[in-house]
Design a protein around this nucleic acid. Sequence first.
DNA 1: ATATATCCTATCTATCTAGTAGGAAAGTAG
DNA 2: CTACTTTCCTACTAGATAGATAGGATATAT
Lengths: 146, 146
Amino acid sequence: MLSRKAKYALKAMVQLARAAPQQLTSADIADRTGAPRKFLEAILLELVRAGLILARRGKGGGYLLNRSPEQISFAEVIRATDGPLALAPCVSKTAFHRCADCLDMETCSIRPALQLARDATAAALEKHTLATAMAQTPEAEAQLGA
Amino acid sequence: MLSRKAKYALKAMVQLARAAPQQLTSADIADRTGAPRKFLEAILLELVRAGLILARRGKGGGYLLNRSPEQISFAEVIRATDGPLALAPCVSKTAFHRCADCLDMETCSIRPALQLARDATAAALEKHTLATAMAQTPEAEAQLGA
DNA sequence: ATATATCCTATCTATCTAGTAGGAAAGTAG
DNA sequence: CTACTTTCCTACTAGATAGATAGGATATAT
């Protein structure tokens, strides 16, 4: 399961894609996604640090995508917030290391299955970009207060 | 990421598949997988309740698969221990419900992506059975104490 | 009866989740 | 230079989950 953090991040990214080339403030995004503003700010900061978005401080400031929506995949956003997509570190491409509870990776009886699962998930989420999401759901996000 | 519980469960199931038609005690399985015996017992109990294995109490007792290895998928074992494979409840087939943090499922901008991811993961893990795992790694599991 | 093995309950510690609160730093406009 | 806005940073908290451990009750075979 994704954490709320990752879901808020994904929804925020889609909102930024919709707003482009205009920027949105954390308050704007909080309104549009239902995420608590202060919590959202921390998440947006992580996305800034991951290089996915840019931030402008001060009056008239806000956030905007650092790349075009076609170039930002769901996989990247999830990795930036929740970490690797893989079901175990030993099959992760972005954060590979031996599992603490498994001595011999080579003869591990469950690793091949986890590898297939990772590849399948990664393929789906890397193909799916912010542009895909925009095209599929062209309307504004439903408001929580509605 | 899978919990240790799920990994122990999967490894235990593969060991039971290898041992069949002989049964194994919790101590046997703990030895072969590196899982703490008492922790493992709790896990095995969950697998019993999920109908994946059978337990025999008393002297000469132990655990054994309730179906043939070809009929038990990795997906089932993971669901029995860690819960749904899906990244969100709203795209889960086995535990479907609306996400607490999302009012309108129909217009959700991230749901289609999560649906694709779930389908891809489920397909991979449902196809992969204990028999598949046995065939791929015919040797005994590496010992933690080795 | 005794030994064996699963089943059940309770407890514990550390970490993670999902925030809240308060303010510092930076940028803009007058 | 001052006021205002907006991001950035630090600290804190309540509650849940992970990953166990401990001790014993219950069932079974000899």
